[in-house]
Amino acid sequence: MVGLYFSGTGNSKYCLERFLKEFKDIQIFSIEDHKVIEQIKHHTQIIIAYPVQYSNIPKILRDFIMKNAAIWKNKEIFIIATMGLFSGDGAGILARLLKKQDAQIIGGLHLKMPDSIADEKVLKHSSKKNKALILEAEKKIIQAAHDFQNGHSSQEGIGLFSHLAGLFGQRLYFYTKTKHYSNKLKINEARCIGCGKCAKLCPMKNIDMTNGKAIAKDQCTLCYRCINQCPTQAMTLLGKKVVKQYDINHYL
């Protein structure tokens, strides 16, 4: 068994680590890790964690699956989907994509976690509430891990009802948000201090440093790493200003 994840601000990585903590000597790898393909090839059972975006798969993860389509054949996959709201089929949308690559889906788990969309007021919580959300998620993770070990994998987000809930809940209305990479990342030049942190963090290499300033391109995958970590709050994506930056490490 091996763990695989894509994570913007740490929620999905944390949930995967906590799930696999109930097992022994299980390694986890980001899809950005150069070792990840060999790890997938060498394991039959894979636990995948990722953040749901508009009841859909982040573009970077979808592209990773499709680019490496051949390696999923006959793999047994359990999916952990993290989200700020009920997504319907967060696990199911990835499950259906993987099934097309001849993978076997053995279960899914939905976990409500603190919101990381730093430039929108929607879903913002106090530090106390965020800590409570993480604790509740941890309880659910531990139970799901024990059920998995006993051959009773959670099936959240996998069925037809979940599919319809995800489709009509968000995906049908916001499909274009994740169909392509975004060119909407904005950088306030007056606020930018040229530290380069955003460029180093970006999984898409979507930010260049030019003349001591960060310059955004058109390949943003909406992960919000750069926006949440910018020391001067110089970056926005969906909103016009940063409301509250988020990093899971502040709540652990």
Rank of each mutant, 00 (worst) to 15 (best):
V36P: 14
N228H: 09
H163N: 08
V36S: 11
E136I: 05
F29C: 02
N56F: 01
S116K: 11
I193F: 00
L20C: 02
K41Y: 02
A145T: 05
K131E: 10
E189R: 15
R96P: 02
A118V: 08
L61D: 02
I48N: 09
Q104L: 12
V122A: 13
F86G: 13
G159A: 09
I37P: 14
P231T: 13
H250W: 07
L238Q: 10
I248R: 06
F168V: 06
N56L: 02
Y54R: 09
S116N: 15
I207K: 10
L61R: 04
R18H: 02
N56E: 09
S7E: 05
A165Q: 14
K184F: 00
S12Y: 05
A214F: 00
S12M: 12
E22F: 00
N56S: 15
L61Q: 07
I46E: 03
E136G: 08
A103G: 12
N130R: 15
L164I: 14
G8V: 07
M209K: 13
L164H: 08
G151M: 09
Q245A: 08
Q53R: 12
A216M: 04
S55W: 01
D147S: 04
L16G: 06
K131V: 07
K213Q: 06
Q149S: 15
N56R: 05
V36Y: 03
L237H: 15
A214L: 05
I71V: 15
Y246R: 09
I65S: 03
T176Q: 11
H163K: 09
K139D: 10
K217W: 01
K129I: 13
N11M: 03
D218A: 14
T232V: 11
K197M: 09
W72I: 11
I79G: 12
P231Y: 10
H163A: 04
T232Q: 14
Q39H: 12
G196W: 04
K73Q: 15
V243M: 06
R171H: 12
